[in-house]
Amino acid sequence: MLREHFASAEDELIACILPREVRALPREKDRDRIENLYSKVDIYGLVENLENCLQCGKCTGICPVASLSPSYNPRQIIHDILNGSEKRWLESEEIWRCFWCASCYTLCPVDIFFPLLMMQIRYLALASRHGVKYFTPFKRFAQRAREDGLTFAPGSPKSRERIMKIRSSIGLSPWPEISDRAREQYKALFDLTGTTAFLESIREEEEKPLALTYLGGRITRAGKKGRQTGK
C-alpha cells in the first residue's frame, strides 16, 4: 500500500521538478564557517575520521573515568570539538582525567581513535598553558629519560642500589644494558625534533587555571563496603 502511495506521489503530486542528480543540498557545517576547524585539532593528522562521530555515546558508556567522574564525557568533548566550542575543552579540568585505556576506541562504531585525539587536545591546552600542573611531573621524567635512554630510571643512589642488588641477585647485569652510543643518539633525537625546546618552553609559573566545564565536575566516591555514595 505504502509503497504504491510513494511511487505515485513521486511520479505526480509531490515530485520535485528538478532531476534527481541536482537535488543534493549539503547541510551547513561548522567547518564551512571556521577555517581549518578540524585540522586545528588533529594537528598531526592521526585521527582521520572525527567527523564521522554519530554521537551515540558508547564511548562514554564504557569509559571507566566517566563512571567515576560523570562530568568527563568523551562524546561531549567530540561534539564540542566539531562545534568549535574550543574554550570549553581547552580550559577544562576534565580532559586531563582520561586514562587512555582506549575502551572507547574498541567500542566505537566508526572506529574513532579517541586516545590520539586526547593526546592532541592536551598539546593544545598546554600551548595555551592550561593543565601545566599535569605536565610538570612528566617534564622532569622526560628530561631525565633524555639523559638515560630509559624512562623512570630512578635518580636517587638508594633506589639505584636497590635495583642493582635485585638484578644482580637474579643473574642479570646490575643495570639494564644500554650503550653510551644509544644514550647519545636518543638525546640527539630529542634535540633534533624540537622536543628538548618544547619541554623547556612550558614553565610551571605560566600555568593558567582550569575549570570544571562539564556538569560541575562531580566525582562519585566508592564508599566503604563497596557502596557507591555519590556526592
Binding site: F138, F190, T195
Partner: peptide, 25 residues
Amino acid sequence: DPDQTCCSGYLLTCSAHKPEVSLAV
C-alpha cells in the same frame, strides 16, 4: 642489544614528548 633505547611511548602519551621524537626513536 644495548643499542636499543626506551620505546619512548609512555611519555609521549603523557604529553611530554613531541610525536616526532617518538617516531624517530
